[in-house]
Design a protein around this nucleic acid. Structure first.
Length: 426
RNA sequence: GGAGAAGUACCCAAGUGGUCGAAGGGGCUCCCCUGCUAAGGGAGUAGGCUUGUAAAAGGGCGCGAGGGUUCAAAUCCCUCCUUCUCCGCCA
């Protein structure tokens, strides 16, 4: 949620910022609603003051034997009027909410306008692997090494899903453990959140209303619940409606969850295998920060995500996204994309973002400034660290050998009983 | 799924229609005494929103959430959420 005061006081600034994301918003109706709201509150409060004073005088008047009935009548009349103001106010606030809630976050000032074409690669690690043999793609490798079973998953579940089998499951688990241990070492608090969330949580994350169609809803459950599309949704709601202490910030968390997404109609043949599925595993980093230190938190998250891929020895690039390519709720997003040789393209394995106070406003997440004692909105940040569904194929493809085996990165070997290579099954 | 009970400020807890923003503890802060990892005495300390100022000052909201009754609700009624106890279910 944007700051309505900022919009009212500086509509041009906000307009131009949102334009960088491709939103051309006319704020005139909102400003007029805001003025109406202010007026209605002032008028309503004045009536309530009168009412409260009259009501409070009742016991005194009673004791003195005065005319209590006259007061009752007066208050009743006031109540009728107050009700009118309150109803009108409720309507205006509803309109304000309807106007505000679909608006995306404003991009940071230094971001370029526009979409993907204006993304800027700011770092490249390693280089494209070259093969002196005909390399296989990850679907073939999974098949030959017996790591993943798509066919049976289609039988048991449907398209867009898979079984990790045997060494495949162990490799997946090794990746997750490698991520988890790294974050624990870095002082992040490990969280295993619920996977079934209420609607309010989706709203706070800024994923609703935009992505309501893209998550799985539980049928027949009231109040409505959905299955989380990313651990971020749970983590950003962890402190919803709370006031934190400044000295506890930044608070650094991470969580492991599968991520469940409908991704309706987005399946393409290019995205075979596990590049895109209804369910994938992800370890998510998250920070609650202050305005002062959120930029530092952001850099830390980006750095941590990069290191995870670097230490796997995988070729990747880091891009600073243009405003229009940043997530809806985010003021700033950097993507880490790992190279998939069979596709000849880079695929996202981590997206690091700073929401500034956008999510905090939606979820009413604040902190008390230790100097002034004032209550301020937190800044919230998240970064995948990492999603395995693209790391796994990239690893197989980038680390494959002429004999059909795949070399296991050093950092994973301790989770696989010291195994150095996975060989094709006989 | 059924039957009960409960949700009050940082924590415990009193309060069943009217000067209740809410007794009393604990905690925390400061002072005194004592003097050294004890104890005692005194004082202070309670939300959030909004209007607004240099600072002030004021008003509205507030006792799980949302409705309702009433001139007046922490207190009565309804719905929901959460927690606890008992029963049932449990791949």
């Amino acid at each position: 949620m944007l700051d309505i005061n900022l919009i009212v006081n500086n509509p041009t600034y906000v307009h131009d910022a949102l334009l960088k994301k491709g939103f051309d918003v006319d704020f005139a109706p909102l400003i007029s609603l805001y003025e109406q709201r202010k007026k209605l509150i002032a008028q309503g409060d004045e009536l309530k003051t009168q009412k409260n004073k009259l009501s409070a005088s009742v016991p005194v008047v009673k004791k003195e034997g005065g005319d209590v009935e006259a007061i009752f009548r007066q208050v009743k009349e006031l109540n009728a009027e107050i009700q009118k103001f309150d109803a009108e106010l409720a309507k205006v606030e509803e309109d304000i909410f309807a106007f505000m809630s679909p608006l995306p976050n404003m991009p940071d000032d230094d971001l370029l306008a526009g979409e993907k074409e204006n993304n800027k690669v700011i770092k490249v690690f390693g280089e494209k692997p070259t093969f002196d043999f005909a390399p296989l793609d990850h679907v073939q490798l999974c098949e030959k090494l017996g790591l993943v079973d798509y066919e049976r998953a289609a039988k048991v579940s449907g398209r867009g899903t898979w079984f990790y089998t045997d060494l495949g499951a162990r490799l997946e688990w090794a990746l997750l453990n490698y991520f988890i241990d790294t974050h624990i070492n870095d002082g992040y608090k490990f969280i295993l959140p619920p996977h079934i969330l209420n609607e309010e949580s989706g709203y706070t994350a800024g994923q609703f209303p935009k992505f309501k169609q893209d998550v799985f809803w539980l049928e027949g459950v009231e109040p409505k619940k959905f299955i989380l599309p990313t651990a971020e949704t749970a983590l950003v709601n962890y402190h919803r409606n709370e006031i934190l202490k400044e000295e506890d910030l930044p608070e650094k968390l991470f969580a492991y969850t599968p991520c469940y997404r409908c991704e309706a109609g987005s399946y393409r043949t290019e995205e075979r295998g596990m590049i895109r599925g209804f369910q994938f595993n992800k370890v998510e980093m998250f920070q609650y920060a202050t305005e002062k230190n959120s930029r530092q938190s952001f850099d830390e998250l980006v750095d941590k995500a990069c290191k995870l891929v670097e230490n796997l020895g995988l070729h990747f690039r880091l891009s600073k996204l243009a405003a229009g390519d940043c997530s809806h709720s985010m003021a700033r997003t950097y993507d880490i994309e790992v190279y998939i040789p069979s596709m000849g393209i880079y695929k996202e394995v981590s997206s690091a973002s700073n929401a500034n106070d956008y999510q905090a406003r939606r979820g009413n997440i604040r902190y008390k400034d230790s100097q002034t004692g004032k209550i301020k909105y937190c800044h919230t940040l998240n970064a995948s660290g990492l999603a395995t569904s693209r790391v796994f194929p990239a690893l197989l493809e980038q680390c494959q050998n002429a004999d059909g085996s795949v070399t296991i990165p050093h950092v994973l070997r301790k989770y696989l009983g010291g195994m150095e290579k996975i060989y094709p099954k006989k």
